[in-house]
């Protein structure tokens, strides 16, 4: 009997296996990268109802983080300020501005401004701001250079690996407690000396970030 299949059919199984293997690798790799927090979250920059410009308010006006985010050193949440905080200035500064109309409307009616949440940990993660702020971890490590952001975007990945990088190595991220909200602070020029100083902080203040599950997953 003559051959039912042409010669080339011999190579088909090899092609199928190769293609399937590559497809599998691409799928896994793709999910690994594209679904990771460093891709999926970092860069998220939603449109806010009021275009609050951090750069202007922090650098130009000179506000400290805690002027608005008042409970960051007392609570697990760093609160978005209530409209009354905005109105402390904007009742007299640019009182007729169109951009600030939602603010005035909120203050008038009592309805909150529907800010879009940028930074969110999953529901099974318990993160407490106050213990970080009070122990020398600056806002900038997790939220990026917010003081230069005209529109807030998600700067770091905030994945579990990101958190553990600091929890396992707090010396690299600690600073004097009074410099926590100074986002432009840099360690003194001599890196070796600073590393030693940071280790001293960690030792003297007994900084013991939890490294086991109960620290964040309860």
């Amino acid at each position: 009997m003559s051959n039912l299949f042409p010669e080339i059919a011999n190579r088909v199984p090899r092609w199928i296996v190769t293609v399937l293997g590559l497809a599998l690798l691409w799928t896994v790799g793709g999910i690994w990268y594209y679904f990771s927090p460093s891709y999926a979250r970092a860069g998220y920059q939603p449109v806010q109802p009021v275009s609050f410009d951090h750069a202007q308010h922090v650098n130009q006006v000179g506000l400290d983080c805690r002027y608005c985010h008042t409970f960051v050193d007392r609570s697990e949440h760093s609160n978005i300020p209530g409209t009354n905080t905005c109105m402390t200035c904007h009742s007299v500064i640019q009182p007729e501005s169109v951009a600030l109309a939602p603010v005035r409307e909120s203050f008038r009616t009592g309805d909150p401004i529907p800010w879009v949440k940028v930074h969110k940990t999953p529901d099974y993660v318990y993160f407490n701001h106050s213990v970080h702020i009070n122990r020398g971890v600056s806002c900038v490590h997790c939220h990026g250079q917010v003081d230069d952001m005209e529109e807030v975007f998600h700067s770091e990945s905030l994945s579990m690996a990101f958190c553990l990088d600091c929890h396992r190595n707090p010396e690299a991220f600690i600073r004097p407690v009074d410099q926590v909200t100074n986002l432009k602070w840099t360690p003194p020029a001599d890196a070796g000396q600073w590393a030693e100083q940071a280790s001293t902080f960690v030792h003297d203040w007994k900084v013991l970030p939890p490294e086991s599950c109960s620290g964040c997953h309860r």
């Binding site: 409970f71 007392r74 609570s75 697990e76 949440h77 609160n79 978005i80 300020p81 209530g82 409209t83 009354n84 905080t85 909120s106 203050f107 009616t109 009592g110 309805d111 909150p112 401004i113 529907p114 800010w115 879009v116 949440k117 969110k120």
Partner: peptide, 17 residues
């Protein structure tokens, strides 16, 4: 998702505490 703060923050209420 939205974050909805108070329009007029009352005293003695700290979200989370």
């Amino acid at each position: 998702q939205h974050v909805l703060p108070y329009a007029k923050q009352p005293e003695n209420i700290i979200p989370g505490v």
